[in-house]
Design a binder for these strands. Structure first.
Lengths: 199, 199, 199, 199
DNA sequence: ATTTAACCGAGACGGTACGTCTTGTCTTATA
DNA sequence: TATAAGACAAGACGTACCGTCTCGGTTAAAT
């Protein structure tokens, strides 16, 4: 799935013609990251992206149709690296490390901020909604942690609900409030989860 | 607090002059609701709102500065009515009724769709972010339910975290996926919460 | 006829709304004259006109659809003034004065250069062709002279042909060559015309 | 002179390499003729020409710099054939036949329409102006006729003026009006010319 | 009863981003 | 080396919306 977005060089490639410039692609992806930090999602425009990247406007439109699409491509590579959590010795530490890492990602990392912008845009735009769902960025990282913890928690529900129970409170707090859940809250939350899942 | 947004007729009112037209205000609020359903948030413009309401553009700009602000005012009145849950005989039913009602609100009600649009816009626009936080629409309804349940759940954490644990999974699922949590999931989630909160 | 183009303030004016800015209109007409001299017709763009006039792009498009249309409006007022020839004592002098004035107009006057540009564009663009024909700028001035001369030239053909015979050689020479007909040629031409028209 | 444009295969041709494709050249010249009729001069683009000809864009730019240049080359060969008038028994018939042929050429023949487009473009573009003047397409054909008539018209002025007097009214009428001079007008014009030229 | 002041609708104003188009250059693979 | 294909940077195209302004008219409270 990811391939179709990650490797856009595809496209027929029958013969002849100048090949796509990897340099231009990288310049656009970097420009998008920079602009998101500098001016924010709302003030980011296709025109501005092209200019910041030193690239023709048509070149941007040739490969992407919206700024959300560019943002997704720019974000999708980073997210896996940044959200990988090294296994811990026990479930409580494992889950807490994940939630801490998730909070950090969503509030500090450029990729995380991009992810929030995408989720925001998804509420307005059906196309973006589909893109975000298909990429399903959080589920991948959460699944990994949950699979490690599952053997020791016989009451854990199936993955979709467990993911929602684990990450939902953290994510929705960040999306609707100024402040994320505190480390103490995170710890309490993990304890409650394990209490429930062990029964 | 809500008053400051609901009664905008204030504004100095030193003396003389034609009073604000309540008719124009209502026309704008209704136009915004209609347009959100008809064309979606992204395609909704200040110009379009004025035209749909049969109102001069200056009249819109005189009282609101962004479409988010109008939407908030249109939404804030409905939300309390729609999310009120009649008390049930036991905690499990009380919580389940609330989550069911919340799911319904966020996926069906025009006011709920407006709320999602506002949360979405808040990720792009700091001003909207503040508006949404200040209104704190969900907390009000959740607090009521939690207060009813609290006497029977000694382990329930303080309200902010409990609200996140209760509504977070439901909300974040709706914001990031096509499908909300199923009734069965909601039931399972309530059971888990009560298991944790009773210990 | 000319009124419809000369008084563009018309347009219904049924009620309400900010009235058209005469200042903006004048700024555009002057900008077009300037640009025609500075950069030439081909390099003149709607964007450039708006910028030179210090006017929004939409303001230009609101009142004119092509640069030719603007040019015509800018030209149509000047042309009558510049091509009026004071009556002379005899036909030969009358005609020669007109042709001299015409040559001067077409090779020196900004309005004359604009007229040539319009005739040029008329070869490519049917809409411009109609505009130019309808305005019929040269015929008006030629008719005046011909009417003065006619009483003394019984053999003069009807006005359309006489106009072509009088001005055609001068105009086509200027349109297809670097150099206009010389004063000596003009004199010779007038003599030939009168010879023919007196028989 | 014509050679430099007609035989563009020249270009040094010092040593090896793939020779110019005569097939590509013909395809371009035909595409230009087709497009002029189909979409008109203004809507004709270098890109469109290349695509219609089934030719690479670089190939077009390699051999011509503007569409006017291509048009001139496409036009220059035809014009001589189409404007040749077989000698008639008397000056009046000779001149009338020429003017009739000229009218037909300018209003019907693709090459004539191309010529009008070139004259039109010459008003905007100095380079085209020079090209058209240098080719001097009409003078060649007019000179031929005038030379036949001259022995019988002692008062005919030198060729440039005589050409202007003969063809100018016809040409300028076509360039500035919807309708060319009528056959009756042409006949009248010839009579007038001969009246003047015989004195 | 008149004046004053803020409201109302309409719509033109100077801007700016949109997404598309053409320009002339370049880079590739093929002939 | 010339070719067809097609990506590239640049920038004009005409449209839409932005937020402001100007108009003539309306509606009340303060003169």
């Amino acid at each position: 799935m990811a391939d179709s977005t990650v490797i856009p060089t595809g496209r027929g490639r029958s013969h002849g013609g100048r090949p796509r410039s990897e340099q231009a692609r990288q310049a656009v992806l970097e420009a998008v990251d920079d602009l998101l930090v500098d001016v924010g999602y709302a003030a980011m425009t296709m025109k501005g992206i092209a200019e910041r990247a030193g690239v023709g406007r048509q070149t941007v439109y040739r490969w992407w149709t919206t700024k959300a699409e560019i943002l997704l491509e720019a974000c999708v590579e980073d997210i896996q690296e940044e959200l990988v959590v090294v296994p811990r010795s026990n479930p409580a530490e494992d889950l807490l490390a994940y939630l801490t890492s998730l909070t950090e990602f969503l509030t500090r990392s450029p990729a995380g901020i991009a992810y929030r912008a995408l989720v925001g845009e998804a509420q307005h735009d059906t196309v973006v909604r589909d893109l975000v769902q298909r990429a399903d960025l959080l589920a991948l990282s959460a699944t990994e942690v949950l699979d490690r913890v599952r053997p020791k928690t016989p009451g854990m529900p199936e993955t979709p609900l467990a993911t929602a129970q684990l990450a939902g409170p953290v994510l929705s707090q960040i999306l609707t409030s100024a402040e994320p859940l505190s480390p103490a809250h995170l710890k309490h939350h993990v304890t409650d989860l394990l209490t429930a899942w062990r029964h």
